[in-house]
Amino acid sequence: MKITYREALREAIREAMTTDDRVFLMGEDVGAYGGCFAVSLGLLEEFGPERIRDTPLSESAFVGAGIGAAMTGMRPIVEIMTVNFSLLALDQILNNAATVLHMSGGQLNVPLVIRMTTGAGRQLAAQHSHSLEGWYAHIPGLKVIAPATLEDARGMLATALADPDPVLMFEHGTLYNVSGDLDENAGAVDIEHAAIRRPGKDVSIVTYGGTLSTALTAADDLAAQGIDAEVIDLRVLRPLDDHTILESVARTHRLVVVDEGWRSGSLSAEIAARVAEHALYELDAPIERVCTAEVPIPYAKHLEDAALPQPADIVAAVKRAVG
Protein backbone atom coordinates (compact mmCIF):
# COMPACT_ATOMS: atom_id res chain seq x y z
CA MET A 1 0.00 0.00 0.00
CA LYS A 2 1.07 3.59 -0.66
CA ILE A 3 1.83 5.43 2.58
CA THR A 4 3.78 8.43 3.86
CA TYR A 5 6.31 8.42 6.69
CA ARG A 6 3.91 10.37 8.96
CA GLU A 7 1.09 7.93 8.15
CA ALA A 8 3.37 5.00 8.96
CA LEU A 9 4.09 6.56 12.36
CA ARG A 10 0.36 7.13 12.90
CA GLU A 11 -0.41 3.50 12.06
CA ALA A 12 2.25 2.40 14.54
CA ILE A 13 0.68 4.52 17.29
CA ARG A 14 -2.83 3.31 16.39
CA GLU A 15 -1.76 -0.33 16.50
CA ALA A 16 0.03 0.11 19.83
CA MET A 17 -3.00 1.77 21.42
CA THR A 18 -5.40 -0.80 20.01
CA THR A 19 -3.43 -3.79 21.26
CA ASP A 20 -2.39 -2.46 24.69
CA ASP A 21 -4.65 -0.42 26.97
CA ARG A 22 -1.61 0.83 28.88
CA VAL A 23 -0.36 2.84 25.89
CA PHE A 24 -1.29 6.52 25.62
CA LEU A 25 0.09 9.54 23.75
CA MET A 26 0.82 12.88 25.39
CA GLY A 27 2.41 16.11 24.23
CA GLU A 28 1.78 19.61 22.95
CA ASP A 29 -1.02 19.82 20.34
CA VAL A 30 -1.19 16.03 19.82
CA GLY A 31 -4.98 16.02 20.31
CA ALA A 32 -7.36 18.52 18.71
CA TYR A 33 -4.68 19.95 16.44
CA GLY A 34 -3.53 16.51 15.30
CA GLY A 35 0.13 17.02 16.16
CA CYS A 36 2.54 19.73 15.04
CA PHE A 37 3.54 17.49 12.11
CA ALA A 38 0.08 15.85 11.73
CA VAL A 39 1.32 12.47 12.97
CA SER A 40 -1.54 12.08 15.49
CA LEU A 41 -4.26 13.50 13.23
CA GLY A 42 -7.58 11.75 13.92
CA LEU A 43 -6.38 9.76 16.93
CA LEU A 44 -8.20 11.96 19.46
CA GLU A 45 -11.53 11.18 17.78
CA GLU A 46 -10.65 7.49 17.75
CA PHE A 47 -9.28 7.01 21.27
CA GLY A 48 -10.58 9.98 23.26
CA PRO A 49 -8.91 12.60 25.47
CA GLU A 50 -7.89 10.14 28.20
CA ARG A 51 -5.44 8.42 25.85
CA ILE A 52 -4.58 11.29 23.48
CA ARG A 53 -3.64 13.94 26.00
CA ASP A 54 -2.83 17.53 25.11
CA THR A 55 -0.35 18.97 27.58
CA PRO A 56 0.62 22.46 28.73
CA LEU A 57 3.61 24.14 27.16
CA SER A 58 6.08 22.64 29.64
CA GLU A 59 8.41 19.89 28.45
CA SER A 60 9.83 19.35 31.92
CA ALA A 61 6.33 18.79 33.31
CA PHE A 62 4.92 16.40 30.72
CA VAL A 63 8.12 14.39 30.25
CA GLY A 64 8.25 14.06 34.04
CA ALA A 65 4.62 12.93 34.03
CA GLY A 66 5.45 10.37 31.37
CA ILE A 67 8.30 9.01 33.47
CA GLY A 68 6.00 8.71 36.48
CA ALA A 69 3.33 6.95 34.41
CA ALA A 70 5.90 4.50 33.04
CA MET A 71 7.18 3.72 36.53
CA THR A 72 3.66 2.86 37.69
CA GLY A 73 2.91 0.40 34.88
CA MET A 74 1.71 2.49 31.91
CA ARG A 75 3.37 2.57 28.48
CA PRO A 76 3.43 6.29 27.58
CA ILE A 77 4.46 7.74 24.24
CA VAL A 78 5.63 11.29 24.92
CA GLU A 79 5.90 13.59 21.90
CA ILE A 80 8.25 16.59 22.02
CA MET A 81 7.83 18.94 19.07
CA THR A 82 11.52 19.31 18.23
CA VAL A 83 14.82 18.11 19.64
CA ASN A 84 15.68 21.70 20.56
CA PHE A 85 12.71 21.79 22.95
CA SER A 86 13.81 18.50 24.55
CA LEU A 87 16.58 20.47 26.25
CA LEU A 88 13.88 21.89 28.53
CA ALA A 89 13.33 18.33 29.77
CA LEU A 90 16.98 17.29 29.90
CA ASP A 91 16.90 17.02 33.68
CA GLN A 92 14.00 14.56 33.50
CA ILE A 93 15.55 12.53 30.67
CA LEU A 94 19.12 12.37 31.99
CA ASN A 95 18.72 12.56 35.76
CA ASN A 96 15.53 10.51 36.04
CA ALA A 97 14.56 8.33 33.06
CA ALA A 98 18.10 7.19 32.31
CA THR A 99 19.17 6.61 35.91
CA VAL A 100 16.19 5.25 37.89
CA LEU A 101 16.86 1.60 37.02
CA HIS A 102 20.46 1.84 38.26
CA MET A 103 19.74 4.05 41.27
CA SER A 104 16.99 1.67 42.43
CA GLY A 105 19.27 -1.33 42.21
CA GLY A 106 17.27 -2.78 39.33
CA GLN A 107 13.90 -2.49 41.09
CA LEU A 108 12.30 0.20 38.89
CA ASN A 109 12.08 0.26 35.11
CA VAL A 110 10.99 3.22 32.98
CA PRO A 111 9.26 1.75 29.87
CA LEU A 112 8.86 5.13 28.19
CA VAL A 113 9.11 6.15 24.53
CA ILE A 114 9.90 9.77 23.75
CA ARG A 115 9.37 10.80 20.11
CA MET A 116 10.74 14.03 18.70
CA THR A 117 11.48 15.75 15.41
CA THR A 118 15.09 16.45 14.58
CA GLY A 119 17.12 17.97 11.79
CA ALA A 120 17.13 20.88 9.38
CA GLY A 121 16.30 21.51 5.74
CA ARG A 122 12.92 23.16 6.32
CA GLN A 123 13.91 26.81 6.88
CA LEU A 124 12.89 26.79 10.55
CA ALA A 125 16.10 28.44 11.77
CA ALA A 126 18.27 27.73 14.77
CA GLN A 127 15.73 26.99 17.50
CA HIS A 128 13.89 24.30 15.53
CA SER A 129 16.50 22.65 13.30
CA HIS A 130 19.43 21.18 15.15
CA SER A 131 20.47 17.52 15.26
CA LEU A 132 21.24 16.78 18.90
CA GLU A 133 20.61 13.04 18.92
CA GLY A 134 24.36 12.48 19.27
CA TRP A 135 24.12 14.16 22.69
CA TYR A 136 21.51 11.64 23.82
CA ALA A 137 23.53 8.77 22.38
CA HIS A 138 26.18 9.74 24.95
CA ILE A 139 23.91 8.83 27.88
CA PRO A 140 23.95 5.34 29.45
CA GLY A 141 20.50 4.10 30.35
CA LEU A 142 18.86 5.28 27.12
CA LYS A 143 18.29 3.55 23.81
CA VAL A 144 18.35 5.96 20.86
CA ILE A 145 16.74 5.08 17.52
CA ALA A 146 16.35 6.96 14.23
CA PRO A 147 13.91 5.53 11.67
CA ALA A 148 14.94 6.56 8.15
CA THR A 149 12.59 4.33 6.13
CA LEU A 150 8.87 3.67 5.98
CA GLU A 151 9.41 0.16 7.39
CA ASP A 152 11.27 1.52 10.40
CA ALA A 153 8.78 4.36 10.93
CA ARG A 154 6.03 1.74 10.99
CA GLY A 155 7.85 -0.91 12.99
CA MET A 156 10.22 0.64 15.52
CA LEU A 157 7.58 1.96 17.92
CA ALA A 158 6.17 -1.45 18.86
CA THR A 159 9.63 -2.78 19.69
CA ALA A 160 10.46 0.38 21.64
CA LEU A 161 7.27 0.10 23.71
CA ALA A 162 8.14 -3.50 24.56
CA ASP A 163 11.53 -2.40 25.91
CA PRO A 164 11.57 -2.15 29.72
CA ASP A 165 13.81 0.92 29.57
CA PRO A 166 13.48 4.41 28.02
CA VAL A 167 13.77 4.74 24.26
CA LEU A 168 14.23 8.03 22.39
CA MET A 169 12.97 8.05 18.82
CA PHE A 170 14.25 10.77 16.48
CA GLU A 171 12.18 11.52 13.37
CA HIS A 172 13.84 13.76 10.80
CA GLY A 173 11.53 16.60 9.81
CA THR A 174 12.19 16.25 6.08
CA LEU A 175 10.93 12.65 6.10
CA TYR A 176 7.29 13.20 7.10
CA ASN A 177 6.12 13.76 3.51
CA VAL A 178 8.22 10.95 2.01
CA SER A 179 5.93 8.32 0.51
CA GLY A 180 6.29 4.84 -0.88
CA ASP A 181 4.95 1.31 -0.83
CA LEU A 182 4.70 -0.53 2.47
CA ASP A 183 3.53 -4.09 2.97
CA GLU A 184 0.09 -4.12 4.60
CA ASN A 185 1.39 -6.75 7.03
CA ALA A 186 4.40 -4.64 8.04
CA GLY A 187 4.94 -4.84 11.76
CA ALA A 188 7.55 -4.63 14.48
CA VAL A 189 11.22 -4.44 13.51
CA ASP A 190 14.32 -4.89 15.62
CA ILE A 191 15.99 -1.88 17.23
CA GLU A 192 19.41 -3.48 17.61
CA HIS A 193 21.05 -3.63 14.20
CA ALA A 194 22.23 -1.34 11.43
CA ALA A 195 21.13 -2.09 7.86
CA ILE A 196 23.05 -2.11 4.60
CA ARG A 197 20.80 -0.06 2.32
CA ARG A 198 23.11 -0.30 -0.70
CA PRO A 199 25.88 -2.92 -1.03
CA GLY A 200 29.23 -1.82 -2.47
CA LYS A 201 32.90 -2.72 -2.53
CA ASP A 202 34.93 0.49 -2.81
CA VAL A 203 33.96 2.59 0.22
CA SER A 204 31.63 2.41 3.24
CA ILE A 205 29.31 5.39 3.78
CA VAL A 206 27.79 5.29 7.27
CA THR A 207 24.82 7.53 8.05
CA TYR A 208 21.33 7.58 9.58
CA GLY A 209 17.98 9.38 9.59
CA GLY A 210 17.51 12.31 7.26
CA THR A 211 20.95 12.01 5.65
CA LEU A 212 20.33 8.45 4.42
CA SER A 213 18.66 9.74 1.24
CA THR A 214 21.52 12.23 0.80
CA ALA A 215 24.05 9.40 1.04
CA LEU A 216 22.09 7.21 -1.39
CA THR A 217 21.94 10.08 -3.90
CA ALA A 218 25.70 10.51 -3.56
CA ALA A 219 26.19 6.75 -4.04
CA ASP A 220 24.23 6.90 -7.30
CA ASP A 221 26.38 9.81 -8.48
CA LEU A 222 29.52 7.87 -7.55
CA ALA A 223 28.32 4.76 -9.37
CA ALA A 224 28.07 6.80 -12.56
CA GLN A 225 31.75 7.63 -12.05
CA GLY A 226 32.78 4.00 -11.48
CA ILE A 227 32.94 4.07 -7.65
CA ASP A 228 30.84 1.42 -5.87
CA ALA A 229 29.78 2.76 -2.47
CA GLU A 230 28.19 0.73 0.30
CA VAL A 231 25.63 2.72 2.32
CA ILE A 232 24.89 1.74 5.92
CA ASP A 233 21.88 3.07 7.82
CA LEU A 234 22.77 2.99 11.52
CA ARG A 235 19.08 2.87 12.59
CA VAL A 236 20.15 2.60 16.25
CA LEU A 237 22.47 5.30 17.62
CA ARG A 238 22.79 3.82 21.09
CA PRO A 239 23.91 1.10 21.32
CA LEU A 240 25.83 1.33 18.04
CA ASP A 241 25.99 -1.80 15.90
CA ASP A 242 29.78 -1.92 15.70
CA HIS A 243 29.73 -5.33 14.04
CA THR A 244 27.98 -4.20 10.85
CA ILE A 245 30.22 -1.13 10.52
CA LEU A 246 33.46 -3.06 11.07
CA GLU A 247 32.44 -5.85 8.69
CA SER A 248 31.73 -3.28 6.00
CA VAL A 249 35.08 -1.53 6.51
CA ALA A 250 36.82 -4.91 6.32
CA ARG A 251 35.29 -5.34 2.85
CA THR A 252 35.76 -1.83 1.44
CA HIS A 253 38.82 -0.60 3.41
CA ARG A 254 37.57 3.00 3.32
CA LEU A 255 35.09 4.89 5.51
CA VAL A 256 33.07 8.08 5.11
CA VAL A 257 30.74 9.04 7.98
CA VAL A 258 27.84 11.39 7.21
CA ASP A 259 26.30 13.08 10.25
CA GLU A 260 23.96 16.08 10.35
CA GLY A 261 25.28 16.87 13.81
CA TRP A 262 28.22 19.21 14.29
CA ARG A 263 31.65 17.63 13.83
CA SER A 264 33.12 18.45 17.25
CA GLY A 265 32.25 15.78 19.82
CA SER A 266 29.81 14.20 17.39
CA LEU A 267 28.38 10.77 16.69
CA SER A 268 30.62 10.75 13.60
CA ALA A 269 33.64 11.19 15.89
CA GLU A 270 32.55 8.20 17.99
CA ILE A 271 32.16 6.00 14.90
CA ALA A 272 35.54 7.10 13.55
CA ALA A 273 37.17 6.37 16.92
CA ARG A 274 35.68 2.88 17.13
CA VAL A 275 36.83 2.01 13.63
CA ALA A 276 40.30 3.35 14.43
CA GLU A 277 40.36 1.27 17.63
CA HIS A 278 39.15 -1.99 16.13
CA ALA A 279 39.89 -1.88 12.38
CA LEU A 280 42.80 0.49 11.88
CA TYR A 281 44.79 -1.95 9.75
CA GLU A 282 41.78 -2.56 7.50
CA LEU A 283 41.85 1.08 6.40
CA ASP A 284 43.60 2.05 3.17
CA ALA A 285 42.87 5.78 3.61
CA PRO A 286 42.09 8.23 6.41
CA ILE A 287 38.50 8.26 7.67
CA GLU A 288 36.45 11.09 6.16
CA ARG A 289 33.60 12.88 7.92
CA VAL A 290 30.85 14.99 6.35
CA CYS A 291 29.03 17.03 8.99
CA THR A 292 27.00 20.19 9.41
CA ALA A 293 28.96 23.44 9.49
CA GLU A 294 29.72 24.54 13.05
CA VAL A 295 27.16 27.33 13.13
CA PRO A 296 23.59 27.64 14.42
CA ILE A 297 21.38 26.51 11.52
CA PRO A 298 20.65 29.59 9.35
CA TYR A 299 17.16 30.57 8.24
CA ALA A 300 17.98 31.68 4.68
CA LYS A 301 17.61 28.77 2.26
CA HIS A 302 20.95 29.19 0.51
CA LEU A 303 22.78 29.46 3.84
CA GLU A 304 20.93 26.46 5.31
CA ASP A 305 21.85 24.38 2.25
CA ALA A 306 25.47 25.50 2.55
CA ALA A 307 25.57 24.47 6.20
CA LEU A 308 24.14 20.96 5.74
CA PRO A 309 25.75 17.83 4.26
CA GLN A 310 24.92 17.68 0.56
CA PRO A 311 25.45 14.86 -1.99
CA ALA A 312 28.33 16.81 -3.56
CA ASP A 313 30.09 17.01 -0.19
CA ILE A 314 29.81 13.24 0.24
CA VAL A 315 31.03 12.62 -3.32
CA ALA A 316 34.07 14.83 -2.66
CA ALA A 317 34.83 13.02 0.61
CA VAL A 318 34.57 9.61 -1.07
CA LYS A 319 36.89 10.71 -3.86
CA ARG A 320 39.46 11.81 -1.30
CA ALA A 321 39.20 8.42 0.40
CA VAL A 322 39.34 6.42 -2.81
CA GLY A 323 42.13 8.57 -4.17
Rank of each mutant, 00 (worst) to 15 (best):
G209I: 13
L283N: 09
L222E: 08
T292N: 04
S131R: 10
V189C: 06
I114W: 00
D241V: 06
E270K: 09
H302W: 01
F24N: 05
F24T: 05
A269M: 05
L216F: 04
L9R: 11
H302C: 00
D220V: 08
V178I: 10
G155M: 02
A70T: 12
A162C: 03
V290N: 13
A89M: 12
T117S: 15
A279V: 08
G187D: 11
G68Y: 02
G64W: 09
D259F: 00
D183I: 01
G73I: 03
A98N: 09
G210C: 12
Q225L: 00
A219I: 07
P56W: 04
R198V: 07
L161D: 14
D29Q: 10
V322A: 06
G119D: 14
T19A: 14
I245E: 06
V167D: 12
L212Q: 13
E270T: 11
L182W: 01
T214S: 15
V83S: 13
S104L: 13
D241L: 04
A250K: 04
H193L: 06
G209Q: 08
D21E: 15
A312N: 11
F37P: 14
R6Q: 14
L175E: 06
A194D: 06
A307G: 09
Q127S: 14
Q107N: 10
Y5A: 12
I271C: 04
V315R: 04
M26H: 02
W135I: 12
D181A: 09
E15P: 14
I297M: 09
L142G: 11
T174H: 00
M116S: 11
A272D: 08
